[in-house]
Design a protein around this nucleic acid. Structure first.
Lengths: 255, 255
DNA sequence: TACCCGTACGAACGACCGTTAGGCAATGGA
DNA sequence: TCCATTGCCTAACGGTCGTTCGTACGGGTA
């Protein structure tokens, strides 16, 4: 046993079975993807925070991967925590805006809104897995001050789903034992997608989104329109039986 | 801005909105709960790993909370990673054994097995939230050698659910667009319970387990026997309409 | 009595931590 | 040509990290 095996070294040998998430490439938002050193720092930090965790990633680690010395980081960000804060804000902001845009672009019926919400929710987690992992599982490392705007966005995302479910229950299209429980279940199962999904997964992002949309509709107790989904055949898009086709691509680029 | 604000200090000021999990008391298994220093180390480490994360918790932090000096920890554990390894192993072992016992105590019909599985799955996450959080979100910090047995247990837990769903699809009681997707959704939504559930939650552990069981049954497309769940009334136990009553307490102590 | 073993300690090792200070070269507008 | 700005550097500060070493105390055993 060596004298001093430190965190970053230990994390480096993480290989396959114990990977934190399946995705291998950091995907930042197109409009946020800067081309200078500052943007590269953000992208590298995203990858490392997602794979090793915030606390296990040092400023020098990020700098080395960017191709710069540690001190240079501080010419672009006030502190390591500010980098995390920006990533969390970007992630939750994109997430919430995606949900909001999708939901607002529907008829207004709770069923349609739920479909749009889950499509956008799952779509975000398949398109930006690393952003989702960092924004969700490193949030606790953020101080109250630096995380304030992020916490607000997260509350709004949950609240948006809660209102949809509540309205669906109210007009008797949804039937759930408890509104909050359904919100937690739908939100939670979508969140977990970020950990196991990757571009080379057997299922495409659209298939995952469609499958989870079907699951969410069943979860809230909506009666199936025609038949129910068939097993084993990935082409059998059961959601298409309820709506003409998956609605707009909810602003996330296709893969 | 101070000269050197370090991780442990920064994590200490995490207060409310950004807490990693809602639970406040570490709950180790009764049979694992040692009374000596070794047991106290395990319990304290569980709390700190759950709240701050493995990498953000130092050996001296644990020692101080136990009331002992850092060097003493090494009289009981070979390394910090060995503590994490033991916690992960305990957690996944209890989880898998709970699932297995619950499923084996049923009639053998996929519906009954799924009910038993979800009850045990959710029950574990409400009873041992900290153990679940550590065992799941700190797993990536474990080396392949120290985590081998844990990785195996996790694969077995997922495989158990996969077989249940597969058999249900095969005998036409379940109808899902994709078996693996249903497994991921059911497993994932249960896993998230550990993060938001606590003893003083508005919903009891039993209500959460029953609600999620209902969700899982709907998710796999089982036709409702009589009516569906009613909204807003926590006493309306929809699962009870399918089965006489929640089956045995699947070996987790009641709260 | 002599011995051992489990438990706990202070001190230290060497590496790494986040962060700052100060300097140097290139750039571009006045 | 001068000057301010930008971007990056080296070096260092004050700590903390995981871990080891040598020691000491206390109780059970031979």
């Amino acid at each position: 046993m060596e004298k001093c095996v430190n965190l970053s070294v230990a994390s480096h040998r993480a290989q396959e079975s114990n990977r934190r998430l399946a995705a291998r490439t950091a995907h930042l938002l197109p409009e946020t993807e800067g081309h200078g050193t500052q943007g590269r720092v953000l992208k590298v930090a995203l990858t490392m925070f997602a794979e090793r965790g915030y606390a296990a990633t040092s400023v020098r680690d990020i700098a080395a991967a960017v191709g710069v010395k540690g001190a240079t980081i501080y010419a672009h960000y006030a502190s390591k925590e500010h980098i995390l804060a920006e990533l969390c804000r970007i992630g939750h902001d994109a997430h919430y805006r995606g949900l909001r845009t999708a939901v607002l672009g529907t008829s207004g019926r709770p069923v349609d809104q739920l479909i749009a919400y889950v499509q956008a929710h799952v779509g975000f987690h398949t398109t930006y897995p690393m952003l989702a992992v960092v924004a969700n599982s490193e949030l606790h490392a953020l101080s109250k001050e630096l995380g304030a705007s992020t916490f607000l966005l997260r509350r709004q995302s949950v609240e948006l789903l809660r209102e949809i479910v509540e309205r669906g229950v109210h007009d008797h299209t949804f039937h759930v034992p408890d509104v909050w429980l359904a919100v937690a279940a739908i939100g939670g199962m979508g969140l977990r997608v970020a950990y196991w999904f990757s571009a080379d997964h057997a299922l495409s992002a659209a298939q995952v989104a469609d499958g989870y949309t079907e699951f969410a509709l069943r979860l809230v107790g909506t009666p199936p329109r025609r038949g129910t989904a068939q097993a084993a055949d990935p082409e059998a898009d059961s959601v298409a039986q309820r709506r003409p086709r998956r609605q707009q691509k909810h602003e996330f680029p296709d893969r």
